[in-house]
Design a protein around this nucleic acid. Structure first.
Lengths: 218, 218
DNA sequence: CTCTGGTGAGTAAGTACTTACTTTAATACG
DNA sequence: CGTATTAAAGTAAGTACTTACTCACCAGAG
């Protein structure tokens, strides 16, 4: 058992116990953001302690405060990393340009359902943020949500002008569509609906697009 | 001013400061539940302190613990008072019996939108509860949400059978409809959409019912 | 007098955040 | 090349304050 370290047992034990990886500032920062993000999404900002974050990251609390002077700053760093341009939003809008009506709505539905399914923690984070009135939801609203709704609104307007849709309120119709899709994901992930009810992602998307497009067809 | 109590100034000041209403046990209990409910819905369970509750109710913390041995018990009492049979749910389902397709969906939409607008705090409470995985959301899901969805599902099934609707997945369609309506309220209240976008309640309900019914029409 | 509704002043266990200190790795230099 | 220097990465053990929850006691209606 202790054959290797008959003497110096304390130092040896310590060394054995802690194969401590020493990370660079940037690496550690990113790790903390990732760990905290996961915890905040599960338990909320108030519900997560800096101690827990430190423990989960395998470091002492002081390290967190070397990188983020306040717990609140950690939240902001998470926002930046989650809402940064390299992932998400812009990609979707880019995918939509030049597509036909049905293709647009189908793409949006599949994209949103896939995103939620791939990473349900973001939706939780966003919802917590909205409730706790942090800026994440505000930022997300103004960058992502509004952009997508605006795009759909324009598209609907265009379809109406071209006589392909009935004369519905474009803003309301856009929200109706996003509502169907988002609310489905929220039900599955937050309210535990998936225990009672589950459909293949494509089937869900197809159904919603059908209902929406038939409902708005001229 | 102090003609009545020239002496005993301390006692007099105290008496003047606190026109303390002495409530019966039941009254006090109900008051605490009401106050706590409002605070929990604004700041969440973890985000609300017993001290805040006491202050808001104009009593000392100890009184709270005379009525509820743990903070958690207060949550349960709130659940009971919010989900009790006398208000909400059953009334809605009752209103729906024997109505035609359009009437059913219109009634549901108006009802949900009105409820959310009348008391947005319940939605917040419910959402917090779902995130924090308290039993309120579970209970609500099993009593109210499932019941309403089940009713709509049956109605849709019936309408399909009678050749009044296309052959859509009834469960999915029911969720699509509730999704449009609920998601609209959530957007308005939680994500602050109402700063940018507002429509009369009836117009919103009518639009959603239109989109849904046209979309599912045979 | 008594019993119920009410209190002020605790307590122990957290909480975010700090301080004084140690370890490690890369670099400057004799 | 090895060794002193330095600065960053890391820590244990605090601090000041908040938290849920308690307890010994009080006041006034019946």
């Amino acid at each position: 058992m202790n054959g290797k370290t008959p003497l110096k047992t304390r130092a040896a034990a310590k060394a054995a116990k802690k194969p401590r990886k020493r990370l660079s500032g940037e690496e550690r920062r990113a790790q903390i953001v990732k760990v905290a993000s996961g915890l905040f999404s599960k338990k909320g900002f108030k519900g997560t302690t800096t101690r827990e974050i430190a423990k989960a990251a395998g470091i002492s609390e002081a390290v967190i405060f070397k990188h983020f002077s306040r717990k609140e700053d950690l939240y902001k760093a998470i926002i930046d990393s989650r809402c940064s341009d390299n992932e998400g939003g812009p990609r979707l809008i880019g995918m939509l340009k030049g597509k036909s009506g049905r293709e647009v709505f189908m793409t949006v539905a599949v994209y949103l359902l896939e995103e939620h399914q791939k990473d349900p923690s973001f939706m939780r984070l966003l919802t917590y943020s909205a409730l706790e009135q942090h800026s994440l939801s505000e930022l997300f609203l103004k960058t992502r949500a509004m952009e997508l709704l605006g795009f759909l609104e324009d598209k609907i307007h265009e379809l109406i002008r071209d006589g392909l849709m009935r004369d519905v309120d474009p803003a309301l119709a856009a929200r109706a569509f996003i509502g169907m899709v988002d609310h489905y994901s929220i039900g599955q992930e937050l309210y535990g609906f998936k225990r009672y009810f589950r459909r293949p992602l494509e089937e869900v998307a197809e159904s919603f697009v059908d209902i929406f497009l038939e409902g708005t067809r001229r």
